[in-house]
Nucleic acid binder design. Structure first.
Lengths: 329, 329
DNA sequence: ATTGTTTATGAAAACGATTGCACAAAGCAT
DNA sequence: ATGCTTTGTGCAATCGTTTTCATAAACAAT
């Protein structure tokens, strides 16, 4: 491996001078600088990132913690993070936790001690004392797609608004009996989506009918199962608001299996706007999250935090969803 | 930050002893070890990864270079890599190159100097002297989904076989006029898929009719465009072999737009088995790549290479595709 | 000519870990 | 009891940087 000393020797100067010539922070005579640069070229010298990091107490690396890269939500998010980080001179270490708290903790602990300058965490747990601890210790952290009250900086979506607009749209188109297929109530994002649903109905003078509120576990399969249950029950809705595209797709499959048409008999709206959602037939109307931009913003916030030594109070940035109209409504 | 010296002081021993007690490689008296461990606990000491890496010349980190995490091919691959690496005590740094050679080179250069112990590269360029250079310099590298002749270790798919089996299946079901929607001929994987197509036809006594060979740029849009062109030309195929699921989906859209039925009038087979492919209607018959396993194998190979100081000749591992039968044939 | 500044450079001390070497204490054989 | 090995520990060097401090040279001001 070629070190700074090799360069120094070839250029006929000391290691310190090489360091100064390269960094440019401290003035070096033009002539010596040229000699150094030439030696650098000649030897293809690249400074050892480890030594540099050790000395400077900084690695220009950030850790990105996500539950599952296989979930279609995350690739755009990761892309936004990665791209923005790269453009600012940061490298990102991707950590996939499999939604396993132990793995998450291990990752955080392992990297905290100077492999990484800060974290972006996108694992959607509600209570996370270990993250609060990190924040308290002064480790730079930004949450993504989740928040821990106002205790930690975060970039989240206005879930309430997304749901409110989706349901309002259905109501405006004359739909009355609107079912909701929702997710785990422990997650605030699903509670908020439910609130949006509820408020939109209330505003229109409708009431929430309990039989049309379907709580679901996860994914396409369950969307299907739950929708089948509803159709069997005799309660025939004229629209479905699914809090996830996957649930919407499952619901559509069930509706078709029962011989009904989408959107003529039952309109369906999803949530997330997974990329492939526009390849389906009917193309899915859905609430779109600006995932790429959210990833981008999270990095920008994190960099600000890392640069600012003196801690300021956390800010929660709330991004706006967009209702994307397609053929399922 | 808590260092080994803090632990040493608290335990009343020297830093060296702490190091030895922790690593366990060198015997330490039971009693002192206990004292050390207790101090470690008490202070929540975690060794500084940078200092350790600098001293040992090893970081237990691998770099994973991919063109675009947004492409559905990559999440399963990344997952396979990440999970296997983690289980072996490695951390992975994800690098998204946007298919941009400059970004790729920058990443490789930047990380080569000891931030990373080895690389897995999944960017599908044919000529890559920079990678050959790395290999020559002794940097551990494994290629994934691509290969550079026999010069560099690689994990690839038997593209020929996948295509051969897909087309043979269509032929066995009585289809005769089989079109192929293919990708850039500069990429060997598409050349191989074409060869498989060609051979299957030949074996069945059919010949390749040039009008049915469609070369395409990329994605769903182009699959659609190219298929429209074919249907307009009056050449009516009874089956389509698309070398990518996205192309297949585009083709199906075109076929439907022309009022034909899939699979009754025209059967369609894709390639890749993107996860959402089974959510479409009709559910797509396709050639599945064992992406997760390929990522896994790549890591295993890389670790072997990194452990083995003495270089052995590169091995190209060829994985088997599987034909997944669904409703589009 | 003398002193005081400025400027460019090198030597050396960090950063936090590991490890070869030296040495003391303990164990064993004679 | 003496010498020889074994065992456990500390000291100091090392990894490749950056940066403080000191010094020498160049220059300006008296």
């Amino acid at each position: 491996m070629i070190t700074i000393k090799d360069v120094a020797k070839l250029a006929g100067v000391s290691a310190s001078t090489v360091s100064r010539a390269i960094s440019g922070n401290i003035p070096v005579e033009k002539e010596t600088r040229d000699k150094v640069m030439q030696a650098v070229e000649e030897l293809h010298y690249e400074p050892n990132a480890l030594a540099k990091g050790l000395k400077e107490g900084k690695t220009n690396t950030i850790g990105l913690i996500i539950p599952n890269i296989g979930n279609h939500l995350f690739p755009p998010l990761v892309k936004g993070v990665e791209e923005t980080a790269r453009k600012s001179g940061y490298t990102v270490i991707l950590c996939n936790t499999e939604n396993n708290l132990e793995i998450e903790k291990t990752y955080l602990e392992k990297m905290q001690k100077r492999l990484v300058d800060g974290f972006i965490i996108a694992t959607a747990r509600e209570k996370s004392t270990h993250i609060l601890d990190m924040e308290a210790e002064g480790v730079p952290v930004v949450l993504l797609i989740r928040h821990l009250g106002n205790a930690v900086d975060a970039v989240i979506l206005d879930n309430y608004k997304g749901a409110y607009e989706a349901v309002s749209y259905l109501l405006a188109r004359g739909r009355k009996k609107i079912a909701i297929i929702n997710g785990e109530q422990e997650l605030s994002l699903y509670r908020e989506r439910f609130n949006g649903y509820q408020e939109a109905l209330k505003k229109a003078g409708e009431t929430v009918v309990p039989q049309l509120v379907l709580d679901d576990a996860f994914g396409e399969e369950n969307g299907y199962a739950v929708m089948v249950g509803l159709l069997r029950s005799g309660q025939m809705p004229d629209a479905v608001f699914a809090t996830t595209d996957l649930r919407a797709i499952g619901a559509i499959r069930a509706i078709k299996d029962f011989g009904y048409r989408v959107p003529e008999d039952i309109a369906v709206i999803g949530f997330d706007d997974f990329e492939f959602t526009k390849l389906l037939s009917p193309r899915l109307t859905t609430v779109s999250q600006p995932l790429y931009d959210m990833g981008k913003l999270a990095v920008e916030k994190l960099i600000t935090i890392m640069d600012n030594k003196n801690k300021v109070t956390p800010i929660i940035d709330v991004m706006e969803p967009t209702l994307v109209l397609r053929d399922s409504t």
